[in-house]
Each structure stands twice: as C-alpha cells, then as structure tokens.
C-alpha cells in the first residue's frame, strides 16, 4: 500500500546543520507531519518537530515544505508527485533551536508591545451589547491560530533581520485592526500606534502573508490596507479634513485623537511656576572605591538605580513641583 518517497529534512541546531536524505514509507491520505512522525518512530527518534493538535487548529507545526511556509498537518502528500523529493526545513525568519523547531519568541514579544483591549468605562460584565455586523470584521482576525507563517514569510523581517525591532509583522497588524474595529474598545490611538510603534509603513503590501495564511484570513485586504487607509484618514485626506471642519463631526470615531493627552500650551504656561526650585538630581550610588558599581550582583538592590535617585520618594510634595495643574476651563472654553 505504501510507497517509498524521498525526503530531505534539515537537521542541525544553532551551530549549523544540513539537509539529510531519507527514504521513508508514505501511505495514502497522509500529510507531511505523518511522515515526519514515521521518521521519528523508525529512523531518527530524536528528530525535533513541534506539533500539537494535528488538525490545523493550533498552529504549532509550522515549517517550510519545498520552500513554502506551510503547516505540516495541512500539507497532504498527495499534492506531490510520487517521484518528487520533499524538502522540509525549519522556519527561516526565526532563530533555530534544533531540526525543525525554531524560537518564535519574537512574536510573543511583539504581542506584549501592542496595547491590549481596553474595556469601555462604566460597562459592567454582562452588559456588553454588540451587533453581529459590528463584530464580524474583528471575528475574522480572531480566527488566527498564531502559526506565525505570515511573520515568517514577510520579507520585511525575513530578508532584513535589522527591521525586527521596528516591525511587528502581519500577525500583529491584524490584532491592531481587530482592536481598532472592535465596537467597544476604548482606545482611539491604535492607528497612530500601528504607524509609529508597529512599523505599518514597512509593509509594501506584497500579500505573501495572505498567501500563506492557513486560516484564509484576508490579512492584507481586510486588515493592513484598512489600517493604512485609516492612517490616511487622520493624516493625509483633504476631504475628510474638510468634512470634519464643515460638519463639525467625526464619523470615524466618536472622539478626537488623544494618544497622549498634552495640557494646552497656554494653560501650562500660566499654570507653571518655573521659579520654583526643582529637586536636585541624586548622584548614582557608588561602591567603596568611589566608582560606579557595575555588577548587579554586588549592588544592594535589584536592577538599575532609579534615574531620579534611589532615595527620592514619590510622590513629591506638591509645593516642590514646578508644575501646577491647570484649573478646569470656565466660561466658553476657547
């Protein structure tokens, strides 16, 4: 029933590795992950591969099969010719751990940098009311199984390691879009964050993320481009600007932009007391030899010293502050 097929599997770790050849039995209806498991059970018990549900639902078995980022459990052997060599390699964009397993921590870090859902103030649990049409767009993005194939295929970081610090990747653009389109999310600065913090501008919409998505999420058309357009709404569009001026309303959001609320300049001017002497900066703690302590081990406290001096206690007494809180506006505002 089974036939022998030729497999090439990358084996190695962070010190190097190479493609190794295997002849392995393949039966009808099997997927690549089955064959990898057969290799494990019969030829290479220590072949490392990450997998979990084996039904395309958890997104663990991401690998590159014949150069294409795929899920091992969703790539059927029948898509290859009988004589075709199947080459299996780990994801290229992330550091390799061993064999087919890579370190995908990059993605978990980026997830942390994206502000989470901000629940609306004053709405108790159980009182959330949303219409199906309003949640549908976000629901599409919540189908994501975090296989990180889109992150892997995106040439912005795949071919340019140096962009990793500035670019969050498609997975987190859909997360940003999901939250921006969430009917009850209380934040209104997600577009700005996507542009400034996530590196939305790096994307040149070549759509590889959409091509590889096993959940068939329209990442580019439904998340990235709408986010880019929403940035345009805010920053570049003349008609929206004009409409806002004329009708004095904003159809885009219910509130104006306030990424980081800044006190009005005039109020700050009149309210500050610049003559006030500020607290004197503290000197850094020094060791017995009068030099800075380099090693955390020998320091008497964890982590680096406070930039304000370790003996500075917050909050400062109000009379020492140079800043005075502006009193609420009276009369006609501005």
């Amino acid at each position: 029933m089974g036939t022998k097929r030729h497999f090439r599997v990358w084996r190695g770790d962070d010190t190097g590795g190479s493609l190794e050849d295997f002849q392995v039995e393949v039966n009808e209806g099997e997927v690549v992950l089955d064959v990898i498991h057969r290799l494990q059970a019969t030829q290479t018990p220590d072949l490392a591969v990450r997998w979990n549900c084996k039904a395309g639902k958890c997104g663990s078995c991401s690998m590159e099969i014949n150069g294409k980022p795929r899920l091992g459990c969703m790539t059927r052997m029948s898509t290859f010719n009988e004589t075709e060599t199947v080459t299996v390699t780990p994801l290229r964009t992330f550091p390799v751990i061993r064999d087919l397993v890579t370190n995908v921590n990059f993605n978990y870090q980026k997830a942390r940098e994206l502000p989470a859902f901000a629940p609306p103030a004053g709405v108790a649990p159980g009182e959330y009311r949303m219409q199906q049409v309003d949640v549908e767009r976000s629901q599409e993005f919540r189908k994501c199984i975090e296989c990180f194939l889109c992150q892997n295929v995106c040439h912005v970081i795949r071919d340019h390691e140096e962009n990793k610090h500035a670019f969050s990747g498609p997975r987190f653009f859909i997360r940003a879009a999901e939250l921006d389109m969430h009917p009850l999310d209380a934040r209104d600065d997600r577009k700005e964050l996507a542009q400034a913090e996530q590196g939305l501008g790096y994307c040149n919409i070549t759509k590889c993320c959409t091509e590889v998505c096993p959940e068939h999420i329209k990442i580019t058309d439904n998340a990235i481009i709408p986010m880019k357009e929403r940035v345009v709404d805010r920053r570049y569009d003349p008609v929206t600007w004009l409409g806002r001026k004329i009708f004095r309303r904003d159809q885009l959001d219910e509130q104006p932009v306030s990424a980081s609320p800044k006190p009005a300049a005039a109020a700050a001017d009149s309210g500050s007391n610049w003559h006030q002497e500020g607290p004197v900066p503290q000197e850094a703690p020094v060791g017995a030899d009068g030099k800075l302590v380099v090693a955390e081990l020998t320091l008497d406290r964890a982590a680096a010293g406070s930039p304000f001096g370790d003996d500075q206690v917050f909050p400062l007494p109000p009379e020492q502050l140079r800043y005075q809180h502006p009193s609420p506006p009276t009369g006609d505002g501005h």
């Binding site: 294409k68 080459t87 940098e113 610090h165």
Partner: peptide
C-alpha cells in the same frame, strides 16, 4: 496601559537555521 517600550532587541536570540539554498521552492 501605556505604550510599552521595547524590552530588548528582538533579534538577539540566536542564529537562524543555516540553509545554504536561497530558496527551496520547486
């Protein structure tokens, strides 16, 4: 929450798999 600063360089985790072929697409 405030916008979190970056914890550390995302790329400092280690080398990628050493695959000599530029692409293995067939």
């Amino acid at each position: 929450t405030t916008t979190p600063a970056r914890l550390r360089s995302a790329s400092g985790a280690g080398p990628r798999a050493a695959i000599s072929e530029k692409t293995l697409r067939t």
